[in-house]
Design a protein around this nucleic acid. Structure first.
Length: 354
DNA sequence: TAGGCCATCTGGTCCT
DNA sequence: AGGACCAGATGGCCTA
């Protein structure tokens, strides 16, 4: 249920159709003409514009009026205005201002599109991804936070990802519908929706749950990070201990309450980069995901998933990642993890990173 | 119909 | 001067 893009563009079309565009055409892509702002003070959408340095002709007139006011009503000279004298809004200046504004709007739009693309990529690696039922921005971020948190808990405390607690962590602070969605995905395992997801990414018959390899944990070829939803495969999640029915129809007081409660206190850091991880990992350094069994490759498996998501999330803000990595001992641990993960053959994206 | 979510425009601020 | 980023404002769409 994705909404069409450029809704404001519709407004501009309306404006265009009403013939309110500037003659030079500088009001394209939803821009409102200075005339509209100046003369009416309110635009098509009813927006009130506060004129500061806007290039309206009225502004120019206002300035001139102000200058006249300095000569008092009875002819006496009033106090001179202090500070630098305002530049006059000449026609040329107005046009430059307008052109600058149009360019800035375009940049801002593309910036936001970039942000949305990144968010879309993030949605794709969430436990419940659906083209038709998109998570909202805020819910995507919350779920990502929870997911990283939950996976790191699995690594640190050895908690089973099949436990009720794992699901609870995933749903913490999420709205009721999102909680239900997540719970539904976890309970149902690889639903048709998830199969679609795999096919969307790697094409039909390529890897994935329904792919040629047949193994539930054989991920599709590179591109996006290996999808973490392998951990949601039926063999893991259908038999969750203590996970009964639509749990979130009846949420516990602390978890998954209705609405979108504010973030209630600091969580465990998304992924604790501590020596422990590496040590746990070393138990089966040569484990391949294809040969993964829940017992022998437990930590390697979930470590790789956590790292995939971790890196992917940070990939969105790559600049921040770099400063983050070079800022402390993390760089050492990062490389150590990289080496270990390489042995598992499950860190394609990781390698691309380096 | 109210509320949630979203895209867009805009002005301000900071930085190069 | 101009670009990046941010937050506020606004209207449109959708759903309960």
């Amino acid at each position: 249920m994705t909404k069409p893009f450029g809704k404001s563009g519709d407004v501009s079309e309306l404006v265009n159709s009403l013939g309110w565009l500037e003659e030079d055409g500088s009001s394209q892509d939803g821009e409102e003409s200075p005339e509209m702002r100046g003369r009416h003070g309110m635009t098509v959408g009813g927006r009130i514009r506060i004129c500061t340095e806007l290039g309206s002709e009225d502004m120019e007139e206002e300035e001139e009026e102000d200058e006249e006011e300095e000569i008092g009503p009875n002819g006496e000279k009033g106090p001179k205005r202090r500070g630098p004298k305002k530049k006059k809004m000449t026609k040329a200046r107005q046009e430059r201002f307008r052109a600058r504004r149009v360019k800035a709007n375009a940049r801002e739009r593309s910036r936001m599109h970039g942000l949305n693309d990144a968010l879309d990529n993030l949605r794709r690696v969430m436990p419940c991804y659906s083209k038709t039922q998109k998570l909202s921005k805020i819910e995507t971020l919350r779920l990502a936070r929870n997911y990283i948190w939950a996976l790191s808990e699995v690594l640190e405390s050895g908690q089973s990802p099949e436990s009720h607690g794992f699901v609870e962590m995933l749903c913490k602070g999420l709205s009721q519908p999102t909680s239900n969605l997540v719970a539904g995905c976890l309970q149902l395992g690889p639903s048709p929706m998830m199969l679609n997801k795999l096919e969307d990414k790697c094409g039909p018959g390529v890897g994935g749950v329904g792919g040629q390899t047949g193994h539930p944990l054989s991920y599709p070829s590179p591109g996006l990070p290996s999808p973490p939803y392998g951990s949601l495969e039926a063999s893991h999640l259908l038999h969750m201990k203590g996970f009964k029915g639509p749990v979130y129809d009846n949420p516990s007081p602390n978890e998954c309450s209705s609405g979108t409660p504010p973030y209630d206190g600091p969580l465990t850091p998304p992924l604790s980069i501590s020596g422990n991880f590496a040590l746990k990992q070393e138990a089966s350094p040569h484990e391949s995901e294809r040969n993964y069994t829940p017992h022998s490759g437990h930590h390697a498996h979930y470590l790789s998933k956590a790292m995939h998501l971790f890196i992917f999330v940070f990939n969105i803000y790559f600049d921040n990642v770099l400063s983050f990595l070079y800022s402390s001992q993390h760089i050492f641990l990062f490389h150590r993890l990289l080496g270990l993960l390489s042995n598992t053959g499950s860190c394609t994206v990781f390698k691309l990173f380096i």
